[in-house]
């Protein structure tokens, strides 16, 4: 489908990259096959400036207020939030498990760090996901090159700084090829 490219409005603060927000919700009892995943994911909108981002985000429900098996995804415009996307297929993600009650604040801090280019890893960041689950919530940040250890270490250290996580928080890096193998 053809979409109009987002551009910053007059007097707005441009972002380094354009991003899209997506929402997905798993239908209970259905297998999470690639096809049903793609059918269940909806693009909410694309933005090119700080002001455009807030216009979307301010109207969105906070992750901590979602129920059921739901996810928000923030990805660079042109990258689908799927392992199979060309930008993601050689990549991986840092995974942070959060006890209930932390998701809204951590998600906001994470996306502000991405939009503001706080990670300093060139073009490596693809996007981020917050997954709302029954007992805990999961944050993940996806990058292009899973084998680039300097990049993944820098992403981890920046995450620790911007999320201000409890000291006992466990962070795990997973390549997407492993995720595909074991899913």
């Amino acid at each position: 489908a053809r979409r109009k490219m987002a551009v910053p409005g007059a007097g707005e603060h441009p972002l380094q990259f354009n991003y899209s927000l997506w929402y997905s919700r798993r239908t209970p009892g259905r297998p999470a096959s690639t096809q049903s995943y793609e059918q269940n994911i909806r693009q909410i909108g694309t933005f090119a400036s700080v002001e455009q981002f807030w216009r979307f985000y301010s109207h969105m429900i906070r992750p901590g207020d979602l129920t059921g098996h739901s996810d928000f995804h923030l990805f660079k415009d042109g990258i689908k939030p799927m392992w199979e996307d060309d930008a993601n297929k050689m990549g991986g993600k840092w995974i942070i498990r959060l006890r209930k009650g932390l998701a809204s604040r951590c998600w906001e801090n994470l996306i502000l760090a991405i939009l503001g280019e706080q990670f300093m890893v060139g073009e490596e960041i693809c996007g981020a996901v917050v997954s709302v689950r029954f007992q805990e919530d999961i944050l993940s940040i996806w990058n292009k090159t899973a084998s680039d250890q300097a990049t993944t270490a820098r992403i981890r250290d920046t995450l620790r700084r911007v999320l201000n996580l409890p000291p006992n928080t466990i962070m795990e890096y997973k390549t997407h090829t492993d995720s595909i193998k074991y899913s």
Binding site: V50, L115, G116
Partner: peptide
Amino acid sequence: GTRIIYDRKFLLERRSSPVAK
């Protein structure tokens, strides 16, 4: 080229101001 970098405080300050100052 130059990177467009914003810190959290700057981004939060733009939250309620649709037009740049």
